[in-house]
Design a protein around this nucleic acid. Structure first.
Length: 314
DNA sequence: AAAGGTGCCAACCGCCGTGAC
DNA sequence: CGTCACGGCGGTTGGCACCTT
């Protein structure tokens, strides 16, 4: 047998907000005796609380070294920096900010920072630009303009939302016969492995590649071929310089062409799974419908509307 | 002034790794 | 040596305060 249970044995333990009296009892007990055993503490201190509840109250609210008030700009910057490398490891982030608790930082992130990031078009989880919305809306408007009376649907509406940045957009781009976007991780790995940088420590960051690829008003693939592939290309208005400035050793034209033609095709992961008919009666053998046929599907219109509704709620 | 909506955050829930038994 | 509670952690929620209509 292991240890006896802590809180579950007693269902009449108090829950909910702490009263000032309880705070006082907990504080004075810990100041006198410390908190070597949270499990035993409430009984010894005379509190009708679970040890876990006492621990949380002390760590997040009562301990004397706690820092209150607004986060400073320095703290905010540190949180952003740490979150970009650690992710949602709130306790590890909190360990770098004296007096701040993981709970406080987590709340601050979820209520302030997250919104701030989204407002600036940055994915708060990856800290990378969210390049998709304008392209997606443009794609949807094209769909709305072009579809009517087609008997097919897009299968599994929700699955693309798992990675809305890439997968959903690519599905729609693919359906409307535009070039899908590449898988950024794969592209980054491939380009960096192929590029011949002048300096050994230079590389293309994901941000650089994103910025380079995302130009909603242009056919980006064509843009890549025509502009950025020029060795030593100079600064232009759309961010191309970020790559061009890395020196004339970069052979992006060849690299990109090789990339598209190779068996390890960077586009494959983002391609839409086979499109299915609305019902077995509509086509025999559940054969996969090609994109041109799908575009003529009235049911597809409702799928697009669903996508749009979901998007607007995000 | 009142009702409904939204933001915020303290506290809870439930999972997991560690180590006591 | 296996079991299972403890402590720690990240995710989620309930309810209060404030804002908008």
């Amino acid at each position: 047998m292991g240890r006896p249970p802590c809180c579950s044995e007693s269902s009449d333990l108090k829950k909910g907000p702490w009263t000032p009296e309880e705070d006082e009892v907990l504080t004075s007990y810990i100041q006198k005796h410390g908190h070597d055993s949270w499990r035993a503490l409430p009984k010894r201190a005379g509190l009708n609380r679970c040890g876990k509840s006492c621990r949380l109250r002390w760590i997040n609210y009562l301990r004397p070294d706690i820092k209150r008030g607004k986060f400073t700009e320095e703290e905010e910057n540190l949180i952003i920096s740490l979150h970009s490398t650690l992710g949602n490891k709130w306790s590890r982030i909190a360990s770098q900010l004296p007096g701040r608790t993981d709970n406080e930082i987590k709340n601050y992130w979820n209520t302030h920072m997250r919104k701030k990031f989204l407002k600036e078009g940055i994915d708060p989880q990856t800290h990378k630009p969210v390049p998709t919305l304008s392209l997606l809306l443009n794609a949807i408007s094209q769909l709305n303009a072009s579809s009517s009376n087609f008997p097919f649907r897009v299968p599994n509406l929700m699955s693309p939302l798992i990675n809305i940045n890439d997968q959903l957009l690519n599905n729609i781009l693919q359906i409307i016969n535009m070039t899908p976007l590449p898988n950024i991780n794969k592209l980054s790995t491939f380009l960096n492995s192929q590029c011949d940088f002048k300096k050994p420590d230079e590389f293309l960051s994901d941000e650089m590649i994103y910025q380079y690829l995302m130009n909603p008003s242009e056919d980006w693939a064509k843009y890549v071929n025509n502009v950025a592939l020029e060795p030593n290309s100079q600064c232009n208005s759309s961010g191309t310089h970020l790559i061009g400035s890395h020196g004339d050793g970069i052979q992006l034209r060849e690299t990109f062409t090789d990339c598209k033609g190779s068996s390890d095709n960077i586009f494959i992961e983002n391609q839409l799974p086979g499109l299915l008919p609305m019902s077995p009666e509509e086509t025999k053998n559940n054969e996969v419908i090609n994109n041109t046929n799908l575009l003529q599907s009235s049911a597809f219109q409702s799928g697009v509307d669903d996508y749009y509704d979901i998007l607007m709620k995000i």
